[in-house]
Write a protein that binds this DNA or RNA. Structure first.
Lengths: 193, 193
DNA sequence: CGTCTATTTGAATGTACTCAAAAGCGGTGG
DNA sequence: CCACCGCTTTTGAGTACATTCAAATAGACG
């Protein structure tokens, strides 16, 4: 599988020697998945940190009542996975599902450890990656606290215009923290204007 | 000001030489604040990443209607600040306020840059710090999506038992995404059992 | 074309909010 | 030391935003 996008997202932040680049790319397992296929299930032992090369994924939590709650979507160039279980080796809380035919690159906890051990320069890359995710998530928390559903939906479509093509409405509703029925009503109201 | 706690939180994750330790501690500006004093205001140019040595802080967003929304509390050993504005040099969106008499250690964006430049080993520390924050925030988002207010409140008191002593209820309500009136009603209902 | 799932629609319900007023609490000054 | 002031918390009534449930419609896929 092509690792160009992967390497590019890294070299946007840190310079790499050919050797580092090779070793890095070698840490990943390529995997192709079909729409709806699961890359990760709750309770499974083997966890990966996942990089999307093509396609689209979503990572979600299934609660005691069987309702899904979308934590994250992932488009090409984005990372996803249950960070907590990857890093602590605990069982995954989340599922990760392909929303479309996708090419994904997987790295295990131990591969990541070895990479950071051998080439500590990657610490910087992951520091920046996590830092940016943190900023994004802060924005999401802020919206959940301060904005009503309609406004959250409008911001979502503005921030991620490409996602609506891949993602069924019910998952967008879930990401926004509302029911699919209510999202449908919000959309109708917006259309009528 | 004593930098023992600061250095300890770092050496829990990475080993430091005496020289690194000294340089690191030297990057920080000590500051004492009284209850209610603001360490950071929205729109201000100079941004710090803040480490709490003693006392307690909170970082919050004030929306267009003048309502505050608490992003984060910070107890001794914790970090806070508007990461986005610190790292990108943009104006702060948040305010940070002392909840009690506090000793705080401040590092500017440029100091942090210099530190990471000179001793890249600190990249690892901040990678782990941000990684853990990310995990914590994922948990918070999950709760906002899946749990009703009463459950969120119970989880909050279980997770941060010490915070209730420092933090007025209205700020806990704000952190949970509900009004102070409604939190009061939840508490009464819980007492009656 | 038929089946399965997603979306829409409407009615009834519930969770949480707004507004207003009373009660509690803490600090400060006389 | 107590009285007063300001702010937080409580309480209640009315309201709004969002949910649940059920049924109809629309879309996607084999």
């Amino acid at each position: 599988m092509n690792t160009r996008l992967l390497v590019d997202t890294v070299t946007r932040h840190i310079a790499l020697t050919t050797e580092e680049e090779k070793f890095f790319a070698g840490c990943f397992l390529p995997r192709n998945v079909r729409p709806n296929e699961l890359l990760e299930k709750p309770g499974e032992p083997t966890q990966f940190f996942m990089f999307v090369n093509t396609g689209a994924l979503m990572t979600y939590y299934t609660d005691a009542d069987g309702h899904d709650h979308v934590m994250q979507f992932a488009m090409p160039g984005w990372w996803t996975g249950d960070l907590s279980s990857i890093m602590k080796g605990t069982e995954s809380l989340f599922s990760t599902r392909a929303l479309a035919e996708s090419e994904v690159l997987l790295i295990t906890h131990s591969s990541l450890d070895q990479l950071l051990e051998k080439y500590p320069r990657f610490e910087r890359f992951y520091r920046i990656l996590f830092q940016n995710s943190l900023i994004t998530q802060q924005g999401r928390i802020l919206q959940n606290l301060s904005a009503p559903a309609e406004e959250r939906y409008l911001n979502f479509t503005k921030k991620y215009p490409t996602l609506e093509q891949f993602v069924p409405q019910k998952y967008i509703a879930s990401y926004l923290g509302i029911t699919p029925e209510f999202l449908s009503k919000i959309r109708r109201k917006l259309m009528e204007r």
